[in-house]
Every structure is written in C-alpha cells, then in structure tokens.
Design a protein around this nucleic acid. Structure first.
Lengths: 144, 144
DNA sequence: TGAATTTACTTTCCAAGTCAACTATTAATT
DNA sequence: AATTAATAGTTGACTTGGAAAGTAAATTCA
C-alpha cells in the first residue's frame, strides 16, 4: 500500500482523519467478527466506568449527537445489552444501565481493543506515545 | 466544557476519534459559512495537487469509499465545481477535473483551513508537532 | 482468438445519520 | 401561583453512507 505523498498530508485535519480512519477500520473489522460495532462497545464501556449515565452525558462521552445515540440505544435495548430507567430526581432524564449480557459482551470486547492498542503502540517509543496522548487530549478541547 | 476524565481516554481509537471529531467540527462550522463541506474541499484540493486523478485514486486520497465518492462527485458536478472526463487510455477510468469555479472556491477555502491549522498548532511546541505528524502518518498505515 | 477473469466505476437497496420540530418536565420570572 | 423560559430526550422527514450487485472495458490465458 503505497500512499502517494500529497500536500494533503500537510493539513492536520486530514492527517487526523486518515489516522482515525485507519485505526477505526481495523478495529471495526475485528469487532465485526464478534458481531459488535465500535460505537456499541464504546457505549457499553462508558456505562461500565461511570454508573448512572444519562443520555446527554453519554452522548458527550461517546462522541455522538443525541438523536444518533437515541436510535443506537433503541437497537441495543432490543439486543438486550442495556435498559433505560427514568431518573428519580428528574423525570426528563434517562439513566442507561448495562444488563448482565451487556457487561459480559463488554468485557470480552475490551480485551480485543486492548490487544489492538498494544499492537499499535508497540511501534512507537514511550516518549512518542506520551506526546501523542498529550496532544490528542488537547486537540479534543479544540471545539466546545 | 469540563470533559470528565474517564478510562475511555486510555483507548487510542477513542482519543483519535475525539481529537478528529473536535478538529473536524470546528473546521466544518467555518466552511459551512462559506457554503462548503470539508469533504468537498478535500476533493478540490486533491484535484489541484495531482492532475488527472481517477475516481479510484481520488477515493483513496480523500479517504472515502468509492460509492460515497461517486455520489459526492455527482453533487459537485451539478454545483459546477468539477467535471468528469473518460480517460483516453482506459475507457473504464474517469478523470475528474476542476472547473474554474472549483479552483476559485478551493483557493478561497484553503486559506481558511490553513488559518485554523496555524491556530491549532500554535498551542504546541515544534517537537510535539513533529512527533504528532510522524505518529499520525505511521498510524495511517495501520490498515491496508 | 475467444472465453474467463480482473479492474473501474456506478447503481440499488437498505441502514444509519442529521436538522428541526415536538413532548414532557423542571426552573425562572413577575 | 401562573406564565414564560430552559432543559432532556425523542421523533419524523430528509439526506447520506455502505455492502453487494450490476455494467462495461481491459487483461489474461488456454
């Protein structure tokens, strides 16, 4: 795969898109074998770390727009991975909770993701990894 | 905007997605004011640097799947930004060419993109920028 | 040479995403 | 307290994206 050297590579938005796409696609392919989508796993993972996440909080965490999340959660509910619970404190809010199946699937998939992470990071030295994390974190705050 | 610190941030695929999303969204918002989409601009830019790009080459360059590109090019043709030309050497191939309008729009937008790039990179020191470029380039080769 | 294969691109059909409008609930104002 | 405004989430109409099939041209090979 010889990627032709174009001036495109001088734009950060492009380089980020390219790197993201490559990493996302390999991960997606692996998870697909397990009948799992990257975004679906991300939701499960987020629900595991913070308990009692509302739809809004979750949307921000998993980088989705609210309508997209609502529809994806609908599918996940019908797959038995999560269930909705109206918050007691505020009836407008919806808390999402993992089912046992959801937690089980999440744990399995998590290992695959960590494996890929290790494979990917193995090609860089620790300083590079540190800079990457630092910079990506700062870039994430670029937008509101 | 206080992004809660979650273990999500320990996954590279997530950090890449977050950084990409943030940068993409601010850029998209600016280009939208000019009635331009990021992907549309990317196509124009690619066509400007390499002349006589076929659909397939272009798809790889601008990080799109062929069917998606075909449809986007259809729209761009009807907007008068590009036009198709069947390659003389191989009748299966389609060369895309910038129109005068396409080239004009591209030049205008390019400045906006470069401006944002400068703003973003200003917050990092040169070594960080160098590592970022190096690492993103390597990550792009993660997938085929 | 002509049948089979590969390559380039497009189309089709269906799944998924998005904007704007909508409902319900809570908070703020006067 | 009653009205208005703001917030949380969902819905609906529309657009876009993607996998797989379709078309057509070029290439391989028997």
């Amino acid at each position: 795969m010889d990627q032709v050297s174009t001036p495109m590579e001088s734009y950060i938005s492009y380089m980020l898109a390219a790197a993201h796409r490559a990493v996302h696609q390999t991960l997606a392919a692996r998870l697909k074998d397990q009948g799992m989508q990257v975004e679906t796993w991300r939701i499960l993972e987020a629900l595991d770390s913070e308990r009692q996440l509302t739809m809004g909080e979750l949307a921000r965490t998993v980088l989705m727009n609210p309508p997209t999340l609502t529809k994806m959660v609908d599918r996940m509910v019908s797959q038995g991975l999560v269930h909705r619970q109206i918050a007691a404190s505020d009836q407008r809010k919806v808390n999402l909770l993992l089912t046992d199946l959801g937690r089980k699937r999440m744990t399995e998939i998590r290992e695959l993701v960590r494996l890929q992470d290790r494979e990917i990071l193995a090609q860089f030295d620790p300083q590079q990894v540190e800079v990457l994390n630092r910079v990506l974190r700062d870039l994430s705050d670029t937008a509101g």
